[in-house]
Design a binder for these strands. Structure first.
Lengths: 220, 220
DNA sequence: ACCTGAACACCGTTCAAGT
DNA sequence: ACCTGAACACCGTTCAAGT
């Protein structure tokens, strides 16, 4: 067949298949030929729907950004809003959870929103909410950036999983304090979860101090 | 020539050339053939010194980890030590500075220390210093992890540089708060620097609160 | 031990040809 | 408009052959 009466492919089908492949086998497993085979077509067919392979991966990244809950930045039905601290906390948790469901695409996401709509919506929501809460624009920008650093860093790779699960790798003569490091790998999830919550709480506590100084500065 | 009397290659020369290539043209530009050409040999020659291309990149990553200053975790000549907060601050600044000199290798570094000696030395130093400062081991682990999240996230990609430098990309109807976002790209360095310092200060302030509660708990 | 060229099984992308 | 196979210029890696 050369051209079917109904298109075999669509951008949506390609993105779904690419995301499944990335999740199952990693970024390196995604080749245009492999992805096309998964979709039952030949490799060059994809180029009718995307200009490059990179744009397919960008679309996968954006589909993951789109999963992040942003509702905490909107006023509730009764017109009230959660405080900026609570909103920021819940957003960071949702953000990290979305990335951890698709960890292999995080390096692509980490390149910034660029022109990806879901990434831009996310940046718009957090910046707008911080400004509305009384943060000066420059500080609101910093908050968007530093939260991103922390969430991306925590999702990019497991801290605990970065250590090999082999006691012999940690010679006490070379690394006197890593005697238990080989245990990290098996408690990966707990270790990373706890570090994330600890860091997030510290970050928000520290920002609250700065916010207090801000208000103090305004009053006199 | 088949085999020269003096080896043409060494692991050191290969790593230096690979790091230069990564810095100049990015990870994607590193192919075994290209790297070999840069070194004046044929592609397969590299396999006499490294088992895979990935191991070459790991070695480059470790050579960057080795640049991170760890001296703030050691006792000074007079036996005194900086406090854990000051040490952590200076370490984070040095860590980020080292990564920002070689941003293209950060995704490799972000996979964790694995068996890379400089990466393990770094993890050993910060964990040991936190325990010596009185943090319980589990919390010292969290601190190592959360500092890594933040530094890696801040080095992995510029926040500001992630936005395109094109006013038309930010339709006010879609992104009501991103009217100035196109200006971020040109102030990239300042914006990221400021966000990093703001976040680092917040993180350390927040940890200081937790440290205070720790001591309070011990006394009664 | 350390280099070479040839070879294998892949890549991303372009393009003319088909309907 | 949307698919195909053929082709181009690449990949990482293996291996027998050379000294």
């Amino acid at each position: 067949m050369a051209r079917p009466r109904k298109p075999l492919l669509s951008t949506g089908r390609i993105v779904d298949a690419a995301r499944a492949l990335v999740d199952a086998e990693g970024l390196a497993a995604v080749s245009t030929r492999r992805l096309a085979a998964e979709l039952g077509v030949s490799g060059p067919s994809l180029y009718n729907h995307f200009r490059t392979k990179d744009q397919i991966l960008e679309a996968v990244a954006d589909s993951v950004s789109a999963q992040v809950d942003l509702s905490m930045f909107e006023p509730a039905a009764d017109g009230t809003r959660p405080g900026w601290r609570a909103a920021l906390h819940d957003w960071a948790v949702s953000y990290r959870a979305a990335l951890r469901e698709h960890p292999n695409i995080v390096p692509v996401l980490a390149q910034g929103p660029g022109r990806r709509p879901a990434g831009l919506r996310l940046a718009d929501a957090v910046f707008g909410a911080m400004v509305d809460a009384g943060w000066p624009p420059a500080q609101a920008t910093s908050i968007g950036a530093l939260m991103r650093y922390f969430v991306m860093g925590s999702a990019l790779g497991s801290f605990a999983g970065g250590f090999v699960d082999d006691e012999d790798a940690y010679d006490p003569a070379d690394y006197p304090h890593l005697g238990q490091a080989h245990l990290l790998a098996e408690r990966q999830e707990q270790v990373d979860e706890r570090a994330f919550e600890t860091g997030l709480a510290a970050l928000l506590d520290g920002l609250a101090v700065q916010y207090g100084q801000l208000t103090a500065g305004t009053t006199h």
